[in-house]
């Protein structure tokens, strides 16, 4: 668990440029440094839930950022407060990004599954069947097959 007051850095990672993903960490915070305000609880990973995959439970934090540096505009003192899941946060010591914080195994290893009404249990691993495009445009590839170019 990351204690309140800890300085953290949001991973400067852009999975959406590489593959089909669902991400709840806004683009404007990637690579930014903030401060943990508090641990909000533990929740199943939306990045998995979005694809109906078994989802590990992750710690969620409220992280506070100075607002003006985000776009180099705004009023000094203003802030942005955002919910961020632990895997997106890196501990920062002396201004240098460190390894990701170790996870609490007892919490993170718990796997939750959504219950299906009339859906076979093994359908959780099934995303959109390969090669099937329902939008009539190359915007909905098979999540399991990897490459996805942003529209």
């Amino acid at each position: 668990m990351i204690p309140p007051g800890t300085t953290v850095r949001v991973r400067d990672d852009w999975p959406e440029t590489r593959e089909k993903v669902h991400i709840r960490t806004p683009h404007y915070l990637r690579g930014r440094t903030g401060r943990v305000l508090r641990h909000l609880g533990n929740f199943p990973n939306p990045e998995d839930l979005a694809f109906a995959r078994p989802a590990r439970t992750l710690p969620l934090y409220h992280v506070l950022f100075d607002q003006p540096p985000l776009w180099e505009e705004g009023s000094p003192g203003d802030e942005v407060l955002v919910e961020i899941y632990e895997p997106w946060l890196m501990l920062e010591r002396d201004g240098i990004a460190d390894a990701p914080p170790s996870r609490s195994r007892s919490l993170s290893d718990r796997v939750i599954q959504t219950s299906g009404a009339g859906v076979p249990a093994n359908s959780f691993a099934v995303g959109v069947p390969s090669g099937q495009v329902r939008w009539g445009a190359p915007g909905f590839p098979d999540p399991a097959s990897g490459h996805h170019a942003l529209p």
Partner: peptide, 15 residues
Amino acid sequence: PPATKIRVVDSTADY
């Protein structure tokens, strides 16, 4: 007033 700080809360997750 400038002395009142704005805290924008971007609601991204489970709350």
